[in-house]
Design a protein around this nucleic acid. Structure first.
Lengths: 220, 220
DNA sequence: TGGTCCGTGTGACCGGTATCACTGAACTGC
DNA sequence: GCAGTTCAGTGATACCGGTCACACGGACCA
């Protein structure tokens, strides 16, 4: 992970912030963010935050995407949701008050560029900038909703439906109906096993809802 | 459900608010709450909010407890968590901005008394009252955590462990290690079936971790 | 006192998913 | 072109939990 203090007025980053986070429309808020944050570049697969780590910064995703995972007692993982362009991680937001430790793992799903905002600004900005406050509120709302849909998945759907949902979500985030991933990765994200995913995907291919290739699933 | 506009200075309610919601320590915040809210009494089993209903008020629980349920496609239910004394429902908080509809069901687990705060005050109070703001933030944090633990349960634990967790949680909330409920109710809350719960409870009784009676489970 | 209902206990069976074992195919580096 | 590695396909088997069918006992009430 390369972390780099960017010149506050770096025009490219400033532009990216403006266009990606349209909800934060106040120029003063944008300026404050640029002044306080660092630009972080993550390569696909790199970890942004691990379980037990202190939360010191909030990630504003400018490019790429993060995925949030919950870890089980045996080191098994379970996908919570993705954080895409113009979004941030609500878990981090709640931790403004002091030195909370993360109970989740956040890793870059693809090569990702983000602004890391130190948590100490949270409180004052929500008071200072109306648009920042409503961005935070909207984030809470969306994330609760995502978690609820995750619960729906585990509780009410069986595995083939969950696979399809996951593929569709990935397709939506990347804007392509070809998903580059392995059965193993899907299995981890859904807390299942590779063999089962292979079998179900194969069945879905025979029934015509996907096409399979090596490290490749195409939605049809 | 009996809803009643209480005289603002009703001493009992004011006292209950002070002692139950210690985090909201500012007298001005307490006064504002008392002035704006209605007292609502729910009988055990009554519904406070149903899926699809507009969220107009936030419940501050003074007595008893609420339970939040998520509903599946076939009308199956799934317990999210309980809202006990001095707590409120985070889902409602996120909906301050306009006319959101609930995606969950909230019912009274026992006879319950609560203050219903109209959502329109949320925004201004978080700006006006420091203690209210941190109460709201703390609520978000706790609820995210509860949802994550709910997910942990469904994803990583098998049913007997989940039953035990549920019984312990109920025991904690009521302060008694005797839980009054039916196998049917437990089954609904865990999205399982009555027979399975009966069998597992029986096994747990044989292994000595609970004692069973009609509408009664005792933790040992 | 007998009927009805509700909560519970239990056997038989089934389906979905996990696990194990192994094969084969595709890519990677030398 | 070969060896090693990663990814995918597939059968056999096991287990957890869901479903169906039915029995039992206590509570309540006519």
């Amino acid at each position: 992970m390369s972390m780099e203090q960017i010149h506050i007025q770096d025009p490219e980053i400033a532009e990216a912030l403006r266009t990606t986070f349209r909800d934060i429309y106040e120029p003063e808020a944008q300026a404050a963010i640029l002044a306080a944050s660092k630009v972080v570049q993550l390569k696909a697969g790199e970890t942004w935050m691990d379980i037990g780590a202190y939360i010191k910064a909030i990630p504003l995703v400018l490019e790429g995407q993060l995925k949030l995972l919950r870890e089980g007692p045996d080191g098994d993982e379970m996908l919570l949701y993705f954080v895409g362009l113009g979004e941030t991680c609500a878990m981090s937001l709640t931790c403004c008050s002091g030195d909370a430790r993360s109970t989740i793992k956040v890793i870059a799903e693809e090569d990702t560029t983000l602004l890391a905002v130190p948590v100490r600004y949270m409180d004052q900005w929500t008071e200072q900038f109306r648009s920042w406050k409503s961005f935070v509120m909207l984030t809470y709302q969306r994330r609760f909703d995502e978690l609820l849909r995750t619960i729906d998945g585990i509780a009410f759907q069986n595995l083939d439906a969950r696979i399809l949902d996951l593929l569709r979500e990935r397709s939506r985030l990347t804007g392509s109906n070809v998903i580059t991933t392995t059965h193993q990765e899907i299995a981890q994200e859904l807390h299942s096993s590779r063999e089962v995913i292979s079998r179900l995907l194969k069945r879905m291919e025979r029934s015509g809802s996907v096409k399979l290739g090596r490290q490749r699933v195409e939605l049809v």
